[in-house]
Measured scan of single mutants.
Amino acid sequence: MAAGGDHGSPDSYRSPLASRYASPEMCFVFSDRYKFRTWRQLWLWLAEAEQTLGLPITDEQIQEMKSNLENIDFKMAAEEEKRLRHDVMAHVHTFGHCCPKAAGIIHLGATSCYVGDNTDLIILRNALDLLLPKLARVISRLADFAKERASLPTLGFTHFQPAQLTTVGKRCCLWIQDLCMDLQNLKRVRDDLRFRGVKGTTGTQASFLQLFEGDDHKVEQLDKMVTEKAGFKRAFIITGQTYTRKVDIEVLSVLASLGASVHKICTDIRLLANLKEMEEPFEKQQIGSSAMPYKRNPMRSERCCSLARHLMTLVMDPLQTASVQWFERTLDDSANRRICLAEAFLTADTILNTLQNISEGLVVYPKVIERRIRQELPFMATENIIMAMVKAGGSRQDCHEKIRVLSQQAASVVKQEGGDNDLIERIQVDAYFSPIHSQLDHLLDPSSFTGRASQQVQRFLEEEVYPLLKPYESVMKVKAELCL
């Protein structure tokens, strides 16, 4: 049975990233139509530049190519590739079939990587351009969430054990800070992308030097003109047959890092959902379990974690691919890159769409948070109580021993009897502590235990987050809708 299948058929496997999760716009960027249309555009740009620099290419040939950029006979191309065992030459023939007058000058002087690699770089750039505003929107939604809850005390956790208090907004800023680093890295790697350009079979530009009869300047002009037509500021000066596969490492490393950030955020949300302090959106008709109707599973956060793990592992592909590119190139890269580049971007696209949807509907339960604080705060307040007693004339050592005994009794009630923490009640009825009984409410005010959390939130948002989001103001209103 021949390899390949009808990918629109229910009898043929289709990647869930495309069929179930990723956005239509990201799927289109990695589609065959987008790819092969870009090949034709690159052939047109090459012909236009070659004509401008004096090669015998007519206006009629150029116009014929322009008129057929979208006229792609995919069936013919597939048949040609089956016959020739070469995808680029299959599309040269297919393009030439609908451009008979231009057929002889299509791909003039070029090698397969002229269309293959340059198209990949265009796709990487455009895919990054799709991700950047999506990530900015996630940051914006979380920034709104953090600002609104900047002063809401909550129990902090280290080692997932109760620690000092923080605020809900401050905790959210930990998430935002990681995503801001990801946004900066995505922008950097996007701006650092260079075009492969017009380089020939081993990167020496020998074929173009021959076409222009040894004119170095025209060869350099050709490279520059096509690079500018493709919208790049610069091209690699040095290439082998391909652009260095280190570029793929750079791009997928940034995406993998984004995956790590999203995994951490969504894990926190899942843990908070278990504590009943916070939940992701839950639709009115949504079913959490087929057997347990009360369940409210954090399905979206779980999906993000599941896909983020996949995204983090994909960076190993370009690392290994770059390491086995012998001399000017081997074909070890080809099949692998067809999979890992598309999957990385479709996965990143999915987790950003999902995280935006989550961040637009996060639900906080202040009463649950308050109750958990009441359970733990008495123990945390013991040092403040000791200091207040010393100020009232008591002995630190005597007070410490009193607190120690009462704390152990209260802990026994919590752990052995399943009761509430009654340390404060014990202190309130103990005559030894009568000098500070009137101060206990103040000493137990949760806001006095959150330090500068709310001020940190305000400063972080104003100095770091809002300036970073400013270039994306025009796209901030787009909502994230999930079908599944």
Rank of each mutant, 00 (worst) to 15 (best):
Ser395Tyr: 07
Val254Arg: 14
Glu279Asp: 07
Leu319Arg: 03
Ala110Arg: 02
Ala392Arg: 11
Arg303Pro: 00
Gly200Ala: 12
Gly288Ser: 07
His217Glu: 10
Arg452Tyr: 06
Ile105Val: 12
Ser447Asn: 12
Ala410Cys: 07
Pro446Gln: 01
Gly54Ala: 09
Thr94Ala: 14
His97Asp: 14
Ser301Lys: 05
Leu252Ser: 12
Leu132Glu: 11
His86Leu: 02
His263Thr: 14
Met299Gln: 14
Arg171Pro: 03
Phe95Arg: 00
Phe30Met: 13
Thr167Trp: 00
Arg452Phe: 09
His159Pro: 00
Ser140Met: 14
Tyr432Asn: 10
Glu401Gly: 10
Arg196Glu: 11
Leu142Ser: 05
Trp326Ile: 10
Glu462Lys: 06
Pro293Leu: 03
Phe30Asp: 03
Arg33Asp: 12
Ile57Phe: 06
Lys264Cys: 06
Leu46Trp: 00
Asp59Gln: 09
Phe327Asn: 10
Lys170Tyr: 02
Ala381Val: 13
Gly96Pro: 00
Gln164Phe: 06
Thr52Val: 12
Asp317Trp: 07
Lys367Leu: 05
Trp326Thr: 05
Arg452Gly: 07
Ile249Ser: 06
Met65Leu: 12
Ile369Pro: 02
Phe30Tyr: 08
Trp43Phe: 07
Glu462Val: 14
Leu46Arg: 00
Ala2Cys: 15
Gly116Ile: 04
Asn297Arg: 03
Asp441Arg: 09
Gly288Phe: 01
Leu406Tyr: 11
Gly104Tyr: 09
Arg149Asp: 04
Ile424Pro: 10
Arg85Glu: 00
Cys340Tyr: 15
Gln161Leu: 01
Asp349Tyr: 06
Phe28Ala: 08
Arg33Ile: 08
Val189Thr: 11
Asp178His: 03
Pro162Glu: 01
Asp11Trp: 15
Arg85Phe: 10
Val247Cys: 11
Glu64Tyr: 07
Trp43Leu: 06
Asp223Ile: 00
Leu128Trp: 00
Gln210Asn: 14
Gln205His: 07
Val189Asp: 07
Leu174Gly: 15
Gln416Tyr: 14
Gln408Pro: 04
Val465Tyr: 06
Gly394Gln: 09
Ala410Met: 10
Thr350Met: 09
Arg137Ala: 15
Gly116Trp: 01
Ala49Thr: 04
Met312Phe: 07
Gln397Asn: 10
Glu80Arg: 10
Gly116Val: 14
Ile176Ser: 03
Val219Ser: 04
Glu343Leu: 01
Tyr21Cys: 00
Ile287Pro: 02
Leu484Asp: 07
Val247Leu: 13
Trp175Glu: 05
Thr119Asn: 06
His7Glu: 13
Glu220Gln: 11
Gln241Gly: 03
Ser151Ala: 12
Ala342Arg: 06
His97Leu: 14
Val226Ala: 01
Val324Arg: 01
Val198Phe: 01
His93Trp: 12
